[in-house]
Every structure is written in structure tokens, then in C-alpha cells.
Design a protein around this nucleic acid. Structure first.
Lengths: 384, 384
DNA sequence: AATTTCAATCCAATCGTTGTGGGGACTCAT
DNA sequence: ATGAGTCCCCACAACGATTGGATTGAAATT
């Protein structure tokens, strides 16, 4: 491979001159220009600054430049300065690919989009999570490689990315019971960290938010507002997040010495229409609850619409709460439970980087606290 | 670097045996096991299948293996078969990093998250776009590297990613007038393709959706339902998308021989509350419009809420339309304009890949047609 | 003065591929 | 037998960085 130095020697000028001719030809003497261009032609050189060029420019060896780049303290400040200057002058940027090859790291984190056959089921919370993930990873010098996991393809995509060494590890979200991805990644000893957890017996790094606690917060809030008949709309059984929240509901109700009734409980898929119907069912019971807790904002949204058909106002007539504090909750003034997505993302990245460095901290499983965001849907208001 | 072959020679067994010892020790004879393990220890070898191992296993040269991998037709079918078998047997996967270094391509596409200081302003449409982008790019053997562009940092992040050769090119979205990213990327001859366009005079590859046409569809629909007094809630002037849609409104109104009034037009930031107020203002005019066209779903959502405070029903009492067909539109039964995000994403990727290959097609600027999604908010309904 | 020590550099091998430029083996016509 | 022409395959030099071990000159020690 031809370097700036080769051209310089052939044209019998300095490396700096060659660079100047190639980047700002207008600032250079006629003779320099022609001789350099001739050399360039002869060697058919194309400008591409590498570490070698920097070394030649600074008058040191390649390794010295490398040490400077990597902040190796052995290098004398004067030399360091000289090299830095050369880097600046030539506008040099280390080639990540070459570095990756040598160090066999990629500084990339893989994150699979949650499968979304049904666009309505796309979870805005996870979009936000991905955003925060990207942000925090970047501050650690990592980037996120997003990929889509074809439905029912198992974890092919994960293996492929790892096998071809495109990523150093993975972040998982949307875990299910006995999540096969977790199992397989553990088996293959591929670094990963998860948002949410899967199987109590598996030992892997994750960050989760206490779903029971979230519902507890909601119910405490409702109790403080005098509600004693509290309904629930949650997922069908068998979904991890749903089950946790449902359980939280029962625990909190019992903890407060209240009772619930079957008629006040609905298990429905997470869609607007199903929740609408569920609200209808619950509010048809006698006595009917004065508050309805929903395991998700979408459900609350559907319930709210049902209230409107009865000309009931959420907050004033029936208290209504959601979960996840999605943008829609803000829009419709829905009391909801917020997960600290920013913190989760940063912790997950931290855990993952530790895994990649083969240093699993003692506390590699964290449970974070959600917080309650009270809005109009659970407190009576005079207007609007 | 030590290869399987080195170990095999030292232990005086076949390459296949070494591999077997290292992967399925239970299926191997005692003597093989000990001799191989001894060799492994002596060379302190760690299992890592490379093209060299495949070559040794198949009894061909490294380049032959490479040719097979890259489907070079020169290789004889029998040899090809032999190599394929070796690849399978050893579970070999080419190392992407090494390949990237050699070919100086990365098969990565950079996409910056739209800046979102204000979380409420996050655009779900772009989340969907990113998803589709990832999906289509993958089908072309590319992956998406997402990054966040720190606000006011200019296009530093873009340059950095390109300079360190992490990506082959970029996809842009959320373009503004005279977008500085477009200008700079054009200047630096960095491949990119955009969703949306920026400056009429710049020649760069993009895909856009005809915003005027979208509004026109809406207004034609309203006309067909007999509306003649049609209001508009749109962005303040100076935002590309907003201006296009506003213009579409005026053109369509005039084209239909109708007139508009200043009092029926509101320019507001894209928030629920501002739209609420705008609707209030518009509906206070006399005569008041029978329909309100909004340049965005969020605005329509705010307007809808205002209607509700008046006990007016969208669709029955006042027709209301949004734009972008975000999930919320589906939820609240809002007539909206849908952009073919899947098509856009695939076209953008196509254009970008062409740029990367330095083959700009004649049609490197496409304008796609939006479509109207009619829901209850613009058609009177009997129930619900 | 001879030897050791040490900080500051440098040399060269290496990471795992790709692809050019041969070259051996074979066929076919001379 | 010879030469030309194919057809397959291989040796080897890259790609652009990192890094262990060698080297060097000067300071410290003997």
C-alpha cells in the first residue's frame, strides 16, 4: 500500500507538502503541484490518511502513534504533542474496522426490535427505551445495531450477528417466561443484559421495574382518595408483565383489608376495543367499582372511552388509571405508572459492558422502583 | 496465530478430530482426547474457526474457500461442495470485521434519532420508519446503526461515523429547509438518501410523500360529504412539512371554488394544548366551519378534546381529520392521511445502496402518494 | 569505567479476510 | 512433441490498526 511518505519521497518533497497538494491545491506552488501530482500518478495513489501517514508526518513510528491514540502513559509529553499535531494537521481518524479486527471487539451492541406483526401492538415504551439505550451506549463509546428478529425464527438472528462478530453483546427486552433467547445466549456464553426478567432460577444480568410495586402505588393513591371498590383490567394470564401486575393488585387490595370481586376483574388482550368491552362488563356489575386500575395505558384508554359513552367523566365519576405512562397517557390526562426508562437503559448498558469485560458485578440483577404520575383521570376536577 | 491444523499436526491426528475433541469431547476416544488436549495446551490454542481451518479441513487453499464463500463461479462444483461441507462441519462463519477491513465496506447504515429534547415531541411515525428501515436493510444484507445527534452539534456525529468508517452511508429524515446535514454530506461526498426533501435546488436522492396531495385527499373527502366551510389547524410557518400541507389546503379549497377565512385558520405548535386552544378559536368564529382539517394527528386529538367539552361529536357534529395516521388515530377513530412508510423505507434503502455503489439512478427523487384512511371522525355515525 | 536500570520508542508479527497474478494440469490442434 | 489456450486453484501481499518484545540512550549504581 502506498503512503503519503512514498509519494513524498518520489516527488522529493515533505509529507506535509504532499498532503497540502492533495487537499488544498490552490495554496501550493506550481512546481510542488506538478511534481507531487506526477508522483501520485506514477504510484496511482489515492488519498487516505492512515496511522502510517501520521507517523511519517510526526517523524515517529507507527506504534508510537498508536500509543498516543490509546493514551498510553509511556509516551513523553513532547512526543505526544507532536503526534497530536500531526493527527490534527492530517485530519486523521483511526479506522474502526481495523481496530476492531485487531482487538476483536466491535463496540457494538445488538438490540432486536420487538416483533410486531400487528402494528397496533408496537410498544412506544420500547421505542423510548431504544432511544435512551442509544444515547447512553454512545456515551460509553458503543453504538446500537438494531435488527429485526423474524417471527418464529428462534434466535437465529442473534447467533448470526455474534458469529460474524458484528456485535459484542446484546440487550434484550420484552422477556417472556422461560425466554428461549436468554437460555440460548446463556448456553453460548454470549454477553447480554436484559430489561425485565424471565425465569427466577436463571442467573443472568437484568434490570427490572417492580410491577407489583407500581400497582401498589396506584392502589394506595386510590385508597387515599377514598375508593374502596376497585376493579382491574389486565392481560390474560400467562404473560409475565400482566401476571405480575395482577398479583400486585390482589396483594395491595388484601393488604388494605379490602376485598375484590370476580365481576370487577377482567382479563383482556391489550387493545382498545377489548378494554372497552371489559370496562362495560365491569361497570355493569352491582355494586360497581368506583375505580378501575388498568395494567396498561391502552386498556385505560379503551375504558375511558366506554365511560364517555355513559357520559361519565374519568376522575370525577370513576377513577381510572393506566400503566407505563406512554405519550397517550399524557395526552388524555391519565394517571399512570412511570418506569424510569432512562435509568433502566443506562443500567442495562452498564451490566452489559461488565459482561463483555467478563466482570459480572455482585449486583447484576436490579429491581427499580416505578413512580406514580397522577393526572386528572383519578382526581375529581372542576373543569375540563 | 495457531490454527486447528497446527494442533492437528502436533497431536498427529486429523483436523476433524481436533475439532471434535474441542466441541464434543464425549464422542471421542481417550487417546485422541489426551493427545489433542496436550497439543492444545502446548500451543495454548483457543478454538476459533477461521477460513484457514476450513481450508485445512477441506484440503484446499484459503483463497479457494474465499471464492466459495463469495460464489466465484471459477471453482469446480466438486471443490465447492467439499468446501461447503467443511464450512458446515466446522460451523464456520466469516468474520465480518476482517471482511470489512479488506473490502473497506461495512454494510452498515447510519440513522440518527431525531432530536427529542421534549419527549412529547417524539414522532411515532419515525419510530415506525426506523423499524421498516431495519427490516428492509436486513433483507439487503445491511444493518442499521442508530445514533443520537447531540442537539446543536452540527453534523459532528455523522462525520465521525463516516471518518472512522463505521458506516457506508446515512439515511436522513426530518429534513428542514436548507438542511445543513444535506449540504455537508453532499460536500463531503458521503453517500446518503433522505426521507423528505429540503431545498429544491439541491440534487440529492430522496423519497418524499406528497403532502399537498394528502390534504387534497382530505378535502375532497370532506367535499363529498357536503362540507363547504372547512377550517385548518397547521404548524406555524417556516416548517417544511407544515407549509406544504397548509399550501395544499389553500390549493384544494380554491380548486373546489370555495373560500376560506382567516378565522378558520390556526397556526400552532404541534401540541395537544395548543391545538385545543386553536380549535376553540376556530369554532368561536361565525359562521363556524363544519369541518376542521389538521396537519397532524396530535393537533386533531387536541381539537377533538375541545369538541368534547362542547358536547360535540367528531364526525357527527363537526368533521375532523388528522395527518400521519399514527397509532393514536386508530385508537380514537380519527380520519387521517397515511404515508406508505414501508415503501418509503425500502425506496430510501434502495437509493442509498445505489449511492454507495456510485450508481445514481435517473429517478433518484421520488414523490409517493399518501392515502386517506377514513374513520368515524369525519363520517356521521349512529352509535359509539 | 563498567554495569545495571529504566523510560521512551520502534520493529515486526498479527488479526481474518480478499483478490491479483501466477502456474500446473489438461485438452486440442499443429 | 510442441505450443497455445483453458480451467482451476494457490501463494502471497494487502487492508489499517494493536501490542509483545526488542532496542536504545541516558541516568543511576557499582
Amino acid at each position: 500500500m502506498t503512503t503519503l511518505k512514498d509519494v513524498a519521497e518520489r516527488a522529493n518533497v515533505t509529507v506535509a507538502t504532499v498532503y497540502q497538494v492533495l487537499t488544498k491545491p490552490e495554496e501550493v506552488t506550481e512546481t510542488d503541484y506538478t511534481s507531487v501530482m506526477e508522483a501520485v500518478k506514477g504510484l496511482d495513489y489515492v488519498l487516505n490518511i492512515t496511522i502510517r501517514d501520521v507517523a511519517a508526518y510526526a517523524g515517529v513510528s507507527v506504534s508510537t502513534v498508536s500509543y498516543v491514540i490509546n493514551n498510553n502513559p509511556l509516551i513523553k509529553p513532547a512526543t505526544r504533542q507532536k503526534v497530536r499535531e500531526a493527527i490534527r494537521a492530517l485530519g486523521y481518524h483511526p479506522n474502526t474496522t481495523a481496530r476492531n479486527l485487531k482487538t476483536s471487539e466491535t463496540h457494538m451492541i445488538g438490540y432486536a426490535w420487538h416483533v410486531a406483526e400487528d402494528p397496533v401492538r408496537r410498544n412506544p415504551l420500547l421505542d423510548l427505551f431504544l432511544y435512551e439505550l442509544a444515547q447512553y451506549a454512545e456515551s460509553c463509546g458503543y453504538h446500537i445495531l438494531t435488527f429485526t428478529q423474524p417471527p418464529h425464527s428462534g434466535i437465529k438472528a442473534y447467533e448470526e450477528l455474534r458469529n460474524t462478530s458484528r456485535v459484542d453483546g446484546f440487550v434484550l427486552s420484552d422477556l417472556v417466561y422461560d425466554d428461549p433467547r436468554v437460555k440460548r445466549l446463556m448456553d453460548m456464553k454470549i454477553p447480554f443484559a436484559a430489561y425485565g426478567h424471565s425465569n427466577e432460577e436463571w442467573d443472568f444480568p437484568y434490570v427490572d421495574v417492580d410491577g407489583q410495586r407500581g400497582i401498589q402505588l396506584v392502589i394506595e393513591h386510590l385508597l387515599s382518595r377514598g375508593h374502596e371498590r376497585i376493579g382491574l383490567i389486565s392481560w390474560p394470564e400467562g404473560f409475565r408483565i400482566g401476571d405480575v401486575r395482577t398479583e400486585g393488585y390482589f396483594k395491595a387490595i388484601q393488604g388494605a383489608g379490602l376485598t375484590s370481586r370476580d365481576a370487577w376483574i377482567a382479563h383482556t388482550p391489550n387493545t382498545f376495543d377489548h378494554a372497552f368491552d371489559a370496562a362495560h362488563q365491569i361497570l355493569s356489575s352491582k355494586p360497581r367499582p368506583t375505580a378501575i386500575v388498568c395494567a396498561n395505558d391502552i386498556m385505560a384508554f379503551g375504558a375511558k372511552r366506554y365511560l364517555e359513552t355513559l357520559s361519565l367523566e374519568a376522575g370525577t365519576d370513576v377513577a381510572l388509571t393506566g400503566y407505563d405512562d406512554t405519550p397517550v397517557a399524557e395526552l388524555i390526562g391519565l394517571t399512570s405508572v412511570r418506569q424510569p426508562i432512562g435509568v433502566i437503559a443506562s443500567k442495562v448498558v452498564e451490566l452489559l459492558l461488565a459482561e463483555i469485560a467478563h466482570q459480572r458485578p455482585i449486583e447484576h440483577q436490579m429491581m427499580l422502583e416505578p413512580s406514580l404520575v397522577v393526572r386528572a383521570s383519578s382526581v375529581p376536577s372542576r373543569r375540563r
